[in-house]
Write a protein that binds this DNA or RNA. Sequence first.
DNA 1: CGCCAGATTGAGGACGCTCAATTCTGGTGG
DNA 2: CCACCAGAATTGAGCGTCCTCAATCTGGCG
Lengths: 247, 247
Amino acid sequence: MDQPRAITEVWLQRLFRRTDLSSGDMATIRELPGRIDHIEANRDFVKLGERVTAACLVVDGLAARFGQTVEGERQLTALHIPGDCADLHSAVLPNPECALSAVTDSTIYRIPHEYLHRAAQSSPAIARAFWRDCTVDASIAGEWMLNNGRRDARARLAHLICELAVRYANCGADRDRFALPMTQIHMGDALSLTPVHVNRMLRRLREDGLVTIRAGVVEIADWNGLARAGEFSDRYLHLTRENPDTG
Amino acid sequence: MDQPRAITEVWLQRLFRRTDLSSGDMATIRELPGRIDHIEANRDFVKLGERVTAACLVVDGLAARFGQTVEGERQLTALHIPGDCADLHSAVLPNPECALSAVTDSTIYRIPHEYLHRAAQSSPAIARAFWRDCTVDASIAGEWMLNNGRRDARARLAHLICELAVRYANCGADRDRFALPMTQIHMGDALSLTPVHVNRMLRRLREDGLVTIRAGVVEIADWNGLARAGEFSDRYLHLTRENPDTG
DNA sequence: CGCCAGATTGAGGACGCTCAATTCTGGTGG
DNA sequence: CCACCAGAATTGAGCGTCCTCAATCTGGCG
């Protein structure tokens, strides 16, 4: 097992931003044992149909959750940036019907379910933090369904860019200028579009003076315009703490 | 508060089918207090943007979770049959970005979050059962994303019908013949299609000898053919117990 | 300099949408 | 028992967004 301290810290901060955790709980999470793994771009590091025994925390890079049709067409169902636990859900459903792929060269930290369960059992607050983390994930999935199902290609793309801008900004990046290591193929797989059409819509967003993506760098020229084009509101990301009706 | 015993039983059985629960835990869930509410068809019983303080267990009828665009176009993100807890997630995210609507006249049992949290705090097994219930929901959402994003209209519809057949059958209905109180408008909202196109695809499925929907009753003539048409496999529904790597 | 993955652009086609009219169904009141 | 009605289902015609196929361009790298 690798030295986890610095590694789980990003995730911990994210959990903590959403949930109250005692310092003891934080120490428990900080010291969750696991194994560092380096994955090269476009490699599936959790395969479809395989039984999962550890959850993957994204330390560096970009990971995608996806499902696929029998013909092999992919649909991304989530994107995970550093600090996200990409398949915490596998702790309670170890036979997921989705897989994980590295969009770009990535570093992940695999935490055996066993330790996650031990942590959850040791503290109701940790159990709730894990539950909530999965629920935020589901909230994002719901917004993606709405986006892909009911908005046209231009709006979809604008929405995705806004989401990633806010999520990266939440980790300290500049909201209006950040590195996005995704190809147009990936964007198409996330948005249920063909890469060709993604390309055309990116051109339109550029011509509309909203955003430019060049050499893997997003530059947002008009945030308000882009958000309007994508009907974007960041509420579904649940980045800030809410006080639940705690028992 | 209403007498809960018989009411929470269906949900409990569903939870239990997936997770080990002690008899004490089962009693706790069985006695969860709440309030019975009767909702007429097409009424939203959890509104968009409103703070939620109780979770809704569907006792009778059919409920839909949905999001909507600024123009008011709806995208259903989940369907809930009797025994489903439609927004257990609201216990940890009380400001959800989705709403709940009754597809048909329905009866729901509203359980204040407070009691759910008390139950979860009293027993790690209950906490995990709740977490898992939400996770199954997310698994279904993932499959819907794949379905709506990457399959054509005919396959989408076939897939939805198969899913509902299996879910209803899991509650004791006949898999090949069951009441489905949804209009073609609802199906369109679930599948990101217009009702007109839903109608045409239903005709094709009928002409192909796969399934007939008439007067709210689904009759599946060729299960294997329908499942093949929709690329359906029931694994993502996680209906049976899996033994997680428990701590 | 050659190679390759990804980005870009063009032309044509198709799936699903829009708008609109008609039929069917079940429920209601006369 | 029938007339009436509203909501849902059904069907047709025309259209548009997005897809398919294919060619070309670009930038990074050996």
